[in-house]
Design a protein around this nucleic acid. Structure first.
Lengths: 319, 319
DNA sequence: TTACCAACAACAAACGTTTGCGGAAATGTT
DNA sequence: AACATTTCCGCAAACGTTTGTTGTTGGTAA
C-alpha cells in the first residue's frame, strides 16, 4: 500500500535508524490503522526466542505456589513475557517430560520446583547448554551449582523458635513434615541447632506428621498425656491446619493453655482466632526474586547464585 | 546422514503412507538416537496453530481458580496442549490487553473468566472470527450467545438451603457477597425463591458483606442481639472464613447454638471442627467440563452451549 | 514390446519475519 | 568537476517445517 518493501516496513516498525522519520511515521500509522500485528511464530522462528517462560511445579493446588505464580506473572507481563504452567503431579516422569516440552518449545527460560522424589536433574541442567536459563525455586536440588531462589528455612525457623524462647515455653511440641523432604530436614536442623544454642535441649520434643490428620492426632495424644505441651511449633501450613483442627476438637485455649507458632505464607494463620503468629515465607516475594534472577540470567550474568528470601515475624495472638 | 531429503524425513516421522516401512523405521530410529525434536515455532508458522490455550482470569490467588487451572492443565497435557496464564488483576484494561495478546500469539483457544467490572466483551467475541474458540467460565457474560461453563448457582444454593429447611431452622442469617456481582445476584435470587417456595419467608434474613471481616462483624452483631440466629448460610468461602472467625471469637457452639452451611469448593470447610456442611462447587469438575467443551469447539461444533455444573451436598458436622 | 501403475522419494514453494549487504540518490568535500 | 560520504531503501537469504507436485524405478498386464 505504501510501495515499500517488506524489509523497509520491518525496519520502520522497529525504529531502525536507516529509515527516514517520514517513512517511519507513515508506516507506523498505517500499521496502527490496519491493526497489524507481527506473527509471533514467524518472529520466534527467525529470532529463535519465544518470549515465554515455563513454570514447572508439582501442583498448583498448594498453599504456596499460586502466590508465587501470581507474582511471577505480574512481572512477566511487565516485561512482555508469558508464563506457561506445567504441573508434574509430583511425578518425576511427568516432570521430565515437562522439561522436554520446554526445551522443544524453545522457551526463554524456566522456573522449576522439583517433585519430592526427583533424583536426576541432569536433564534440567542440560537446558542451560541450549541457552535456556533455569531458576530453581522452593524445592531446589541440594548441592548442585545452579540458580536457586528459596525460602530462608533457617531464618524463618529461627525467628519462629525465638518467639517460643522469648515466651519461656518449656514443653514445646515441634511438629515437622515428612522426614524425607529436604525442607523438613532444613527446618528441623535449624530448629534443633537454635534450641541447642539457647540451652533449650530439654524443652522440646520433635515429631513428624505426613499430613494434617496425623498432625492433629499427634497434638491430641500429647494434649491428653500427663505432660501437656505448653507450645506448638508448626513447620508448615499443612501441619498448622492439622494442629488447629485438634485445637478445635479438644477445645484447647490458645494461647492460654498452649501457644502456637508456625511458618507460613500467611493465608491460613488469619483464618483462626486468635490469629496465628507466624514467620512469613512469602511466595509473592519469592516470585519477584526469582524473576529478577531470571532477567539477570537472560542479560548474561555468568555466575549462579543462591538467593534466600528473609522472613519476618507476623505477630498474631496465638502465643 | 541417511541420504534422504528433508521432505522424506518429515513424512517418515509422521508415518506418511508414501514412505516405505523400511525407510520410515530407519528415519525414526535415527531421529530417536539423535533426540531430534521438531522446532515448534517452525511447525506453528507453517500450520498456523500453536497448541497453546490462554487462560485469562482476574487473579490466580482465589479459592477457586487454582483448582480450575490445575484441572485444565491435566487435560491439556493429555491432549498435547500447553496453558498460558494471564491475570487481569480484576482490571478490564489489562484484561483487554491480555485478549489482544492471545490473538497476537495465535493461541488455539482461550478460557476466560471476566473481571467484576468488564462491560464490553465485543473484542473477546471477535476472537471467534479469527477462529479462536472462547470458553467463558465462572464469571461469564450475562446474556450473550457464547460458550459458558459455570457453577450451577441455583442448584448449589438450593441444596444448601434445603439442609437448612430439613433441620427446621427458623432464624437463618443468610450472608451474601457484593450485591453488584452477578454471582451474588444469582445465589441470592435462588435462595429467596427457594425459601418462598417452601413458605420460609419469615425465617431468614439476608445481609451482605464485602469481605470476610464484614461477614464476621455481621455475625457478631446478630449473635449478640436478642434474636440470635439459629443458622448461617454462607454464599461463598470468603464469607465462610469471616463467619468462622466470628464463631471462634464469640466461642459459638456449632452446630448446637448455630448451624452453618456454605457453598464452597471444599478446602476451607474441612479446616474447621466440626467440618462445615457445604454444597460443593468444584473448580476441578468445572475445568474438565470447560476443556471438553473446548475440544468440541476445536472439532468444529457449530452451536454454543451453556454448561452448568451440578453440585452435591458434602455433609460435615456443622448443622 | 509397450503401456500402465504402484511405490517411493525429491523438488520447491510457502508460512512471516529479520538482517547483512549492496545500490541509488542526495549531500558534502576537495 | 570529480570524488567521498551519508541517507535511505530494497534484494535476497535465512529460520525449520509442511505439503502439492513431479520424477524415477521396478513390476505387472496387455
Amino acid at each position: 500500500m505504501l510501495n515499500l518493501s517488506i524489509s523497509t516496513i520491518s525496519r520502520a516498525l522497529k525504529d531502525h535508524p536507516d529509515i527516514s522519520k517520514e517513512t517511519r511515521e507513515k508506516v507506523q500509522e498505517l500499521a496502527a490503522t490496519l491493526e497489524y500485528e507481527p506473527n509471533e511464530n514467524a518472529v520466534n522462528l527467525r529470532t529463535n526466542n519465544s518470549k515465554e517462560f515455563g513454570v514447572i511445579i508439582p501442583a498448583i493446588s498448594n498453599y504456596f505456589y499460586h502466590f508465587f505464580i501470581s507474582s511471577l506473572e505480574e512481572e512477566a507481563r511487565r516485561y512482555g513475557y508469558s508464563l506457561i504452567i506445567l504441573q508434574s503431579g509430583d511425578d518425576p516422569a511427568i516432570e521430565q517430560a515437562n522439561v522436554k516440552r520446554c526445551r522443544k518449545a524453545r522457551l526463554s527460560g524456566i522456573f522449576i520446583s522439583l517433585t519430592s522424589s526427583t533424583e536426576d536433574i541432569s536433564e534440567i541442567l542440560n537446558l542451560e547448554k541450549v541457552n535456556i536459563p533455569v531458576i530453581f525455586f522452593d524445592k531446589v536440588p541440594p548441592f548442585e551449582a545452579c540458580n536457586k531462589v528459596c525460602v530462608g528455612d533457617v531464618h524463618a525457623t529461627e525467628i519462629a523458635a525465638d518467639t517460643l524462647i522469648k515466651k519461656s515455653k518449656k514443653k514445646i511440641l515441634a511438629i515437622f513434615g515428612d522426614k524425607h523432604l529436604s525442607i523438613t530436614q532444613a527446618r528441623m536442623v535449624a530448629f534443633i541447632d537454635y534450641m541447642q544454642k539457647h540451652h533449650m535441649q530439654k524443652n522440646y520434643n520433635v515429631v513428624h506428621a505426613l499430613n494434617p490428620a496425623e498432625a492433629a492426632t499427634l497434638l491430641q495424644i500429647a494434649y491428653r498425656s500427663k505432660t501437656k505441651p505448653d507450645a506448638i511449633f508448626c513447620m508448615s501450613d499443612e501441619i498448622l491446619t492439622g494442629v488447629m483442627k485438634a485445637v478445635q476438637i479438644e477445645k484447647i485455649n490458645v494461647p492460654k493453655d498452649i501457644g502456637i507458632v508456625a511458618i507460613s505464607d500467611g493465608f491460613i494463620p488469619q483464618l483462626y482466632y486468635p490469629e496465628i503468629t507466624y514467620a512469613e515465607t512469602s511466595g509473592y516475594k519469592l516470585g519477584k526474586l526469582a524473576f529478577s534472577r531470571m532477567i539477570a540470567c537472560l542479560a548474561g550474568t555468568p555466575f549462579v547464585q543462591n538467593i534466600v528470601a528473609h522472613s519476618v515475624l507476623i505477630p498474631g495472638g496465638s502465643i
